[in-house]
Design a protein around this nucleic acid. Structure first.
Length: 329
DNA sequence: GCCCAGGCACTCA
DNA sequence: TGAGTGCCTGGG
């Protein structure tokens, strides 16, 4: 899709949002079929999603599963995914995607935001399992698990080790600015795609290190080499079992259980995994083990037994709950 | 100046 | 197999 910088200008978006709020929208709206209770139509160069359950864009973007987003004002964000720049506005009418055509929406964003999945049913099933989860879900009922690009997700979670979200985002932004291709501009700032593996190989460990990646630079470099020379075949993941994909990912220097679980959950549609970081460990110990320290494996076995193939969703609700309430700190 | 943050690899017992 | 330790870096 050709991207006009003028279209992307924030002022332009604000005018459109204002019109939408005032209900002075174009009458030429085309309703499309309802999928999973979805109702959406093309409007003012974007797509308005009017009927949707369980979709809170703020919580979905900021809950720690992705790192390329910015808050522009309350309820208005932008994100960059699959080499696309997307503005999102959530209001009482629904969620507005801009710039976006119906085909972009159907081919890219429906899958990215996991709009085919029935979260009402997932929440219902999990809530009946126990009271803790029921509370965690009611704390952030609009979280959705994104379907991210496996390569970008791999590099991003390698960079997440031993760091908090602002630092991870800072490194990733530098990586994109220094080694990614410009895809558009926003408010006079250039917007870059996530750098390809071959660009990071060219940058070398030194170039990666300049993006404040620290000791993780050699891990990122190793991942790029193994992906570029097809020692790790990301495209083959869909045909492999979760265990096989995990073993494959762990061949990369610097990827262990936690990072591979995040990649599986956030980019390979494997909701049965239960990534257990310090926050999840804390919240599990706090609620299910009488605040006692428990080995990681015990927590994971417990979660798999209790939450079964919805463990990944449970993890995301619990993680957000723990972090916001600072449980165990 | 010190401690800690969404881990991992490595060493050693 | 599990415990202990070093690692970049920036914010509190």
């Amino acid at each position: 899709m050709p991207l006009s910088s003028e279209l992307h200008h924030y002022i332009g978006l604000r005018k459109i949002l204002f019109q939408i709020r005032q209900q002075r929208v174009s009458k030429e709206v085309h309703l499309f079929e309802s999928v999973m209770n979805l109702q959406y139509h093309e409007q003012n160069g974007g797509v308005m999603l009017t009927e949707i359950d369980s979709f809170d864009i703020e919580k979905t973007l900021t809950c720690g599963q992705c790192f390329r987003y910015e808050i522009l004002e309350q309820n208005t964000y932008y994100t960059i995914a699959h080499n696309r720049f997307l503005l999102l506005n959530q209001n009482e009418t629904g969620v507005f995607f801009f710039p976006c055509t119906i085909s972009d929406f159907k081919e890219i964003w429906m899958d990215y935001f996991d709009l085919h999945t029935d979260y009402e049913e997932i929440k219902e099933t999990l809530s009946t399992k126990d009271e803790v989860l029921s509370k965690a879900i009611s704390f952030a009922p609009g979280i959705r698990i994104l379907n991210q690009d496996p390569y970008e997700c791999t590099i991003s979670f390698i960079l997440s080790q031993n760091r908090n979200i602002p630092l991870i985002r800072s490194s990733i932004n530098l990586l994109c600015q220094n080694h990614g291709i410009k895809i558009t501009n926003h408010e006079k700032n250039d917007v870059f795609a996530f750098p390809e593996a071959k660009s990071l190989i060219e940058a070398g460990i030194n170039g990666i290190s300049q993006c404040k990646a620290g000791f993780r630079s050699k891990y990122v470099y190793d991942a790029c080499c193994k992906i570029a020379n097809r020692e790790i075949e990301l495209n083959s993941f869909q045909n492999k079992s979760t265990h096989e994909v995990k073993e494959e990912l762990k061949k990369i220097y610097g990827i262990g259980d936690k990072v591979s679980d995040c990649i599986l959950l956030f980019s390979c549609k494997r909701p049965e995994v239960f990534p257990t970081d310090v926050w999840v460990k804390r919240v599990m110990e706090y609620f299910y083990f009488n605040e006692k320290e428990v080995p990681l494996k015990e927590i994971q076995d417990f979660a798999k037994e209790k939450f079964k193939n919805l463990a990944g969703f449970a993890q995301q609700y619990l993680f957000y709950y723990a972090r916001e309430l600072k449980i165990g700190k």
